[in-house]
Design a protein around this nucleic acid. Sequence first.
RNA 1: GGAGAGAUGGCCGAGUUGGUUGAAGGCGCUCGACUCGAAAUCGAGUAGGCGGCUGACGAGGUCGCCUCGUGGGUUCGAAUCCCACUCUCUCCGCCA
Length: 425
Amino acid sequence: MLDIRLLRENPELVAEGLRRRGLAAPLELFLELDARRRSLLTEAEALRNRRNTVSEEIARLKRAGREAEDLIEEMRGVSRRIKELDEAIQAVEERLAQEMLVLPNLPHPSVPDGSGEEDNLVVRVWGEARSLAFEPRPHWEVAERLGIIDFERGAKVAGARFVFYRGAGAKLERALINFMLDLHTEKHGYTEVFPPFLVNSGAMLGTGQLPKFAGDMFHVSGTDYYLIPTAEVPVTNLYREEILDGDRLPIYHVAYSACFRAEAGAAGRDTRGLIRQHQFNKVELVKFARPEESYEELEKMTRDAEEVLQLLGLPYRVVLLCAGDLGFASAKTYDLEVWFPAAGTYREISSCSNCEDFQARRANIRFRPGPKEKPRYVHTLNGSGVAVGRTVAAILENYQQEDGSVVIPPALRPYMGGLEAIRPE
RNA sequence: GGAGAGAUGGCCGAGUUGGUUGAAGGCGCUCGACUCGAAAUCGAGUAGGCGGCUGACGAGGUCGCCUCGUGGGUUCGAAUCCCACUCUCUCCGCCA
């Protein structure tokens, strides 16, 4: 959520940020609601002040055994008026919140202009996007020939965009999760958490999935539970409604979770393979940082995610998203895109974002800079470190051999019981 | 799922015949005094939010309002009375 004060005092700045995202927001409405709210509040407070003073007077009179009926009669009217004003205030505040909650975050000045993917900026490339000596097969063919992923039975038992991993495939998925968690906890200093996979609507509101993107998620009918689309949701909400000790910052968390996405509106896109599933695994990085350090932390977090791909020997590039391609809550995002030789393209495998205080304001996550100082909102960051299913897909395509086998990246072998390659049965 | 108990400030813990209790007391913490220094002792301070005025939309100052799990009700007035909900604990049942 944006700061209403920023909107009040600097509407042009907000309008400019929204325009860069390709949005025209009717800011006059906000200003009008805000002004109305404050004028009602002032009136109600003046009346409350009157009531409080007179109530003391009444108490004094009663103690002295005197009558106070005329004052009580006056206060009856005052209380009635206060109630009316409170109702009006509540209505205005609800309206204002409703409008504020659907406004996205403003892009950071370092974010380039642009309206979509094609305007994103490649900031660096790692590894060689090599073409293989033979005609590479897409990862789902590699997987099916090895019998390690069962797409058909996934569809039978659950539906389209669900799979069973089997044998070495299941083990590969599990090995990657452990490999990533170990790297981030042991080398990069993150503290592991294992979060709930279902959260309530308050948490979804905090990170920005609700109210605007309800259709992208699975909702357990008859309850207030939603299946998490990413561990970012429970982990960022860990410290909701808390004031953190400034000495603890920055806080680094890493979490494995299954992720569930309805993929509404994605009909026909990536229908084959592991790229776009309703359920997938992900290792997620989340940071809570002081505002003045958050952009430095974003760079470090991106490097931490990159190291996963480097150790696995997967060629990738880092892309800075343009203003028009930014996610709802993000002020600045780097995507990591990994090379897929069969498709001949780079595909997103990680997304690292600084949400600044946008989520912190919604979820009310603050920190005390020093003793006696006022609490301030933290900056929240999140990044995939990295998407596991897509990593499996990338390994299958990049490490496939002409005979149909797949070499296990050396860094992963300790997690695969020393296995050097997956071969057809 | 059934029965009961409870939810107060960073923590512990008073306060329920409604009226200087935003909140006693203790602990913790901060600052000061004492000390060569520390401990002990003494003194002062120690929640958050919102708004008005002042000031530059800053810092600061000042006035006021709200918050004793959450929401609603009764009342001139509610931490205190009533209702609903949430969460925690204990016992029973069930279960990985």
